[in-house]
């Protein structure tokens, strides 16, 4: 058997099952979703095969544009808070004694491995009107406040769900830093803060970018958390997509929203890799 024939046979044997699977269950479905953006809805769901630009027009209707912008805002705020909380956490874990390090890291990831729905449910219990936080506030003579069903509750839920995704890449980036760099900086008379600002921070920018992306992406497209903690009032783009498919049965408009979701994420990915290259 000639080597090149062997290679081709190997390529066929190993690649064709997986690629076929990907074409049938990924590319064709995505192609369908893409094609639906140009069609009209059927009265009972599905599509009517008549071309229309109405779906895109609706996307730029201020009403829906607000939802997209609102989702960007919510995901953005979540990402910033995650960074503000995650960076010091990762930094401190990286500087813990060796035997505590693994333990501290596992403790960060542990909640992440339990059921996602249950983690969100925990916040309903805490934030609800007659819930525990309000009972606590009442005991010290405050409240009750409406803590659930608003934007802050959504941000809190997203933060809780995705914080580990911020800490891990940050930890990896900080851990990799050569401690001698810091020592050199200190020996040259720089204060702890200056060392952090001039040495540690710039060298960990790639980790920051990855962490932000890891938190932003699942937050932006989420529908479970805004639904459970937002009370169906502050709809995010994920809710809107979900409800176009499962309630309003307007698949073409849902597909258009999904396309907008992907477009935003692609722009972010490009921005992230551009920024990472510059850093």
């Amino acid at each position: 058997m000639s080597p090149s024939r062997g290679r081709r046979l190997g390529a066929f044997v190993f690649l064709s099952p997986g690629l076929t699977y990907l074409v049938v269950l990924l590319l064709v479905p995505l192609g369908l979703v893409l094609s639906y953006t140009l069609f009209q809805r059927g009265r009972f769901g599905g599509v009517v095969h008549e071309f229309t630009g109405e779906n895109f027009e609706r996307l730029f209707d201020p009403l829906y544009l607000d939802v997209v912008l609102g989702s960007l805002r919510i995901a953005g705020i979540t990402t910033l808070i995650a960074l503000a909380l995650g960076y010091p956490t990762a930094y401190l874990i990286a500087r813990l004694p060796r035997k505590w390090k693994t333990f501290a890291l596992v403790a960060i990831v542990l909640p992440f491995w339990t059921n996602f729905i249950i983690r969100v449910y925990a916040w309903i219990i805490l934030l609800n009107g007659p819930g525990l936080l309000n009972s606590g506030l009442k005991a010290i003579g405050l409240g009750p406040y409406e803590l659930l069903y608003n934007e802050s509750a959504i941000v809190l839920g997203l933060l809780y769900s995705y914080l580990p995704l911020m800490v891990l890449p940050l930890y990896a980036a900080i851990e990799r830093l050569d401690p001698q760099l810091r020592e050199a900086s200190a020996n040259l008379g720089a204060s702890g803060f200056t060392t952090f600002r001039k040495v540690t921070l710039p060298l960990t920018v790639p980790g920051v970018l990855t962490g932000c992306l890891f938190v932003f992406v699942p937050s932006f497209g989420n529908f479970v958390i805004p639904e459970m903690l937002g009370g169906g009032k502050s709809v995010m783009v994920g809710n809107l997509i979900r409800s176009q498919f499962l309630q309003a049965r307007d698949w073409p408009f849902g597909a258009t929203l999904a396309l907008a979701l992907i477009a935003v994420l692609v722009v972010l990915l490009i921005a992230q890799s551009w920024a990472a290259r510059r850093a």
């Binding site: 369908l32 979703v33 639906y36 497209g221 994920g238 999904a258 979701l261």
Partner: peptide
């Protein structure tokens, strides 16, 4: 890499 929601609706449609 794709958001789960996108995979979900793709498959539902398919």
């Amino acid at each position: 890499v794709l958001p789960d929601l996108v995979l979900a609706i793709g498959l539902l449609v398919f």
